[in-house]
Design a protein around this nucleic acid. Sequence first.
DNA 1: AAGTGGTCTAGACCACATC
DNA 2: ATGTGGTCTAGACCACTTG
Lengths: 236, 236
Amino acid sequence: MSKKTSPLYMKIKNHILQHIESGAWQGSMRVPSENELVKKFKVSRMTTNRALRELTDEGYLVRLAGVGTFVADLKAQSHPLEIHNIAKEIIERGHEYSAQVLTCGTLKASAQQAFKMNIEEGSEVFHSFIIHKEQNIPIQVEDRFVNPAVAPHYGDQDFTEITPYEYLMSIAPLQKVEHVVKAIMPSTEIRDFLKMGQSEPCLLLERRTWTKGNVASIAQLYHPGNRYELSGRFKP
Amino acid sequence: MSKKTSPLYMKIKNHILQHIESGAWQGSMRVPSENELVKKFKVSRMTTNRALRELTDEGYLVRLAGVGTFVADLKAQSHPLEIHNIAKEIIERGHEYSAQVLTCGTLKASAQQAFKMNIEEGSEVFHSFIIHKEQNIPIQVEDRFVNPAVAPHYGDQDFTEITPYEYLMSIAPLQKVEHVVKAIMPSTEIRDFLKMGQSEPCLLLERRTWTKGNVASIAQLYHPGNRYELSGRFKP
DNA sequence: AAGTGGTCTAGACCACATC
DNA sequence: ATGTGGTCTAGACCACTTG
């Protein structure tokens, strides 16, 4: 579970990220130059260059040749896909929310899951499988895998009282979210859970969240195409 | 249009990308090792390493220490909802973009369209119907209605040269965007245009844009579910 | 043992921006 | 003139996989 020893460029990246994420280095403040980091960390310039270049590629920094390196302005616009909380959404519509927990335990990560979560194949992960209902009608099937290193007590929660998303948010702030939206034909299993007709499509939202550099969770959220849509509003 | 002189690592990246995108290097074939590229391009190993590492970060390659570097299995994944420009998206993937304009003219707004655009029923609006293709394969059907008060010359444009989105952006900055994402079964018409199979679902993106307080345009963007997905990444 | 990728060093030259 | 980032070299050591 312990990393060997992280590479030097990674230590420098983390050092800078901590200052950015703690808010110590705000807005478009200047960050130390390559040569300043060379002295501070006693490494070669190639190493500081790699650290700063990768953080730039990742959108944390902006660099100007001849000028310096600066913290990127974080875009304050709202997001096309708000991270939304299905329970909150339903309750805000004034409807009754309920959840049915079909599975909540541990299992060994498959190769694909391990790859997505950046952990070792066969290591134990939490798995929950939950049906979310609006007015007692199924509206979302949530198939989720959780990294125990991030949420060691995930398996002990009562997910009829708190949604997995709410629980995960309560124990660690999330750093980054990746969404993929697909239209698919559901498996018979998913179709039955959602009480869908024969030839209705599913809106599938695949979500991956990061906390402190680790993948916290991967989830597949299935919705009946004829009863659910995603919407978002934002300014460019 | 001419670049100054591209850096060496970029030349190596392009060399490899060309082989991948031409299909010469398929599936998960092995690509030349760092040392082989050092000899071929007469550069230092740090340079070939950077080329291969960046292509790996970009998802084109997969590397295994002690084994080799291989072409990644590519999935035709689209980019964030923030980018609303299908042509740019396709070109950035290094693929060929083309458009087929089936309709471009005016018609009288239906009650529903008039309501969505906040104009009077029966007033004239522009209407365009365009098929967008990636490598000559249809990837999006765009059914769009445009407010003439915002874009009086919309009907005169050649949308094989500029996409409706690019044109609208060029004449007026947009203020607000609304998105709705749905999974639907396509009409036979849409299915034929997208060359989809019998029981494949569509990913439908409905978009409404505002300029200076007026609705500039409403659009329905249909995508084949098995060949298109929407993805997004952001920090909270 | 040989080859691979992963990392790192201690220099170097350049174009550019600022003082 | 000085400092900045952008690039590049010619070595090096390591952990790893394969024959």
